[in-house]
Each structure stands twice: as structure tokens, then as C-alpha cells.
Amino acid sequence: MRRFFLIAIPYAWLTLLFLVPFFIVLKIALSDYALSIPPYTPKLDIGGSWMALKDFFAALDFENFVFLTTDDLYWKAYLSSLKIATISTLLTLAVGYPIAYAMAQAPDEWRPTLMMLIILPFWTSFLIRVYAWMGILSKEGFLNQFLLWTGIISEPLTIINTNTAVYIGIVYTYLPFMILPIYAALEKLDASLLEAAEDLGCSRFQAFWLVTIPLSKNGIIAGSFLVFIPALGEFVIPSLLGGSKTLMIGKILWEEFFSNRDWPVASAVAVVLLLILIIPIVLFQRNQQKQAEAEQ
């Protein structure tokens, strides 16, 4: 009996507040836009008769999804989200790997402090960390002032409201997610393997390329997914750092909902975003599972 409640309570909670809402999104994505509150038809009348239920299903259609394919704004937004997420994941890897590598090489007594310094920004508000870059990247911002002062540039650069600012924002906010799994993989690496490689005639670089990189592969994969997946649906960063030309699907969904108040289209956008995300999520789960099995 106790076991039943233990399972039933969280199960019911998640079903009601996680699973059911998804079916509602799906249903509204298949409904028509209407000028009412809530702004869609048909509404499901749960107490309705069999005929009402039949009418309800008859009124559902794929119009909204067809609409997404006809207006090239949505295509472009999906593609540009994929592009931005991919590029910023690679950039995060390029910035994060050397840091994780250096942390793994650092003396043992430094490691807890280094670890805390990596985690600390993660506890700080996401919004504030993105906001911090608004003041740095703006036209008369800190970065431009600094570069003008050093004489590297003679005209202020336009960085804010471009995709470059979005890349910087994503790399900055998601960096800990990349560093931690790579560090975890590198920390376990047996240094004698590298010595063996060097004894067998590898240069230091070859030993790094042929031994260290393959052995940290799992960390690299996990870190990349942890950055790529949330970056794809990101809203705050493109909305604060990106410009009107920065197309990202999270932003489109937000605008469709709050500005255009077109709920059916917003729901259809959400459904398609979810379908795109399923592939990386499944790949990520498989990678994690393989890793867990390998460790046992």
C-alpha cells in the first residue's frame, strides 16, 4: 500500500503537469485560430456527447503545420537556430577544452578551488550573466572603449544585436556545462599512458592527439550535447544580445505567443522544435547509457 502511494503521487503529478500539457499543445497546434479567449477553436468539451467528440476530431487539421512550411520565416528560423547552436557548441568546446585540460593537470590541492570557481557562475542568475554582456558589447561599451584605447581599432565595432553577440553569450553562459564532463573524463586519465606513448616515439602533440583526445571522447560528447540542446531552444540570449535579424526559434515562439497572440501557430512551432530536439536527446541518452555501462 505504501509502495503504491510512493509511486502514485509523483507519477500523478508529472502526468498532470508534464504529460497532459503536451497533448494540449498538440491539440491546439491542430486547431484553428479564432478571435476569442482563449484564441482557438475547437475547444474540447469533456462532458460532450459522442457526436461532439467526432466533430471535435473532424475539426482538427494540419493547417498550422502547412502554414509553417509556406512562410519561409519559420524555415529560416529553424535552420538559423541549428546553425547558431552548432557554431556556439564548437566555440564552447574550443574555449572549454583547454580550461578542463589545465584543471586536470593542476596540482591536487588547487582542484577543489578551481572546481568551485567553475561552478559559482552556474549558481548566479542566468539573466544577470547575459545582462553583464549588454554593457560590455554595446557601441560605447567596455570592449569598444578598451579596443579604441589600445588603438587596435579606430572605429567602434558593432557587436551587440548581431549573431556574434549571441555566440559570445552562449559560450559564456554554457561554458561550465562543457568544462565539467570533459574535466571528469580527463581527471581519470592515467598519466602513464602518455608516458608510454612518448617512450614509443610519439611527440607530445601526437600523444595528446592519439591518447588524450580519444580517452576524453565521452566527456566531449556529453559536454557538446549539454550545450547544443539548450542552445537550440534558447530565448533570453537572442532576445537580449541578438538583433532583429537574429532568428532563433525560441524567440519566434515567444513573439508568436505574446505579440501576435496566435496560439495555434505558437503550438505548432513548439511541436516542430520538439521533433527536431528528439534526435540529439536520444543520441545523448544513448551516450550516457553506454558510458554508465562501461563504468560498471
Partner: peptide
């Protein structure tokens, strides 16, 4: 299904979670 419902919200874009909950509350 249970473990799926535990892990899915971790990777779900916030815009989707937010939208779906709003539609539930209005519903």
C-alpha cells in the same frame, strides 16, 4: 514512462514547458 517523465523536463526547452503549462492552466 515514469523515468521518461523525470528526464525529459531536464532537456526540454523552457519555452515549450512554459507554453504547455500555460495552455493547461487556461484549459
Amino acid at each position: 514512462l515514469f523515468s521518461g517523465m523525470i528526464y525529459a523536463p531536464l532537456v526540454m526547452p523552457e519555452v515549450i514547458t512554459g507554453l504547455s503549462l500555460l495552455l493547461l492552466f487556461i484549459g
